[in-house]
Amino acid sequence: MTTATAHAQKDQSQAELERRMLRQMLLIRHFEEKAAEAYALGKIGGFCHLYIGQEAVAVGSLAALLDDDYVISSYREHGQALVRGISAGAVMAELFGKATGCSKGKGGSMHLFDAAKRFMGGHGIVGGHIPLGAGIGFGIKYKGGDQVCLCYFGEAAVNIGAFHETLNMASVYHLPVIFCCENNRYGMGTAFERVAAVTDVAEHACSYDMAAELVNGMDALAVYAATQRAVERARKGGHPTLLEVRTYRFMGHSMSDPLHGVYRTKDEVEEQKKRDPISQLALKLKEEGALDQAGLDALDAEVRAEVEEAVKFADESPDPDPGELTTHVVAD
C-alpha cells in the first residue's frame, strides 16, 4: 500500500467517524427537543434533565469504548443511553413510562437501563453512583477481564463524599475506571465556583495519585482522543483516570427550570451557544469536503424521522400491566 493510499483510507475512516458522531449528536439534540415537547404536553412526568449542549461529551467518549465495556451515569443520561445503542424508541417509551421502555416503565428519565448493552443506569442521587462505577471496575478486575467502566457525573458531584472515597479506592485498588466529570458549570442553579474551593476538577486527581486530563467538551473529537488515552490506561494497566470535560447545558437544570433562570444571564447562554458542538463538527466536515449542505440536511431529516418514529412508538405503547407494580421487588 502506498503512503498516499494509506492516507486516503485514514482520511476516509476519519470522515466516517466524524459523520457518525455528527449523526449521534443530532439524534440526541432532536430527541431531547421532542422530549421537551412531550413533557410540555404532559406525556412525560416527574423530573426530566435534558442533555442539549452537552452532546459532544457522550458522543466523543463512548466512541472510545468497545461493546463489552460498561457505562454508568447520572440522571442526565438520555444522550449516553442513545449513543450506547439503546433505541430511541425504548428510551422515549421509558420517558413516557411505557411497558416497552428500556426499564419497563419502572425507572423513568433518571433510571434508564440496558444490561445487555452494559448500560448500568441512570442514577438519581448526585454522586451516589460513582462508587458503583468503581465496583463495576472491581468486578472486571476480579474476573480478570480487560473491559473498562466509563462513569459519568456532573461537576456538582465532586463536592460529595462518595466522589473522594471512590477515587481514593479506585486508585488504591488499580481499577479500570474512567471517571468522566461533565463540568457544565452549574449544579442546578449554583455556579460551581460559588461552592467549590478547587474549581479545576482535574486537580482533585492529584490527591489520589490518579491520571487526569482537562478536555474541551464542546469538541467531540477532543473528548474522543482524551477518552481513548484513558481507556488505554485502564485496559492495559488498570489505572483509573479523572477526565474533566468542560461543557455547557443550553437548557435549564430540568424541565421545571427556566432556560437560563436568575443564576446565569441570557447573554451567557447565547454566548455559549456559539460553541455549539453540533455546528462546530458540521462546519469541520464541510470544510474537509466530507459533507455538503445537502448531505447535512439529509442526515438531519433522517434523524428527525427516527425521533418521530420513537415518539410514535412511545405514544402507541401500552402502560405496564397493573400486576407489574409488585414484580421485581425481590429476585427469585
Binding site: G135, I136, F138
Partner: peptide, 25 residues
C-alpha cells in the same frame, strides 16, 4: 483479591460492593 481491606470509607466500599454485584459477583 477475595478478602479486601478497605479504608474507613463505608459509603465508598458499600457502593463498590453494589457495583461488583451489578456485574455478577
Amino acid at each position: 483479591m477475595r478478602v479486601v481491606d478497605t479504608p474507613i470509607a463505608e459509603l465508598g466500599f458499600a457502593g463498590i460492593g453494589v457495583g461488583a454485584a451489578m456485574v455478577g459477583l
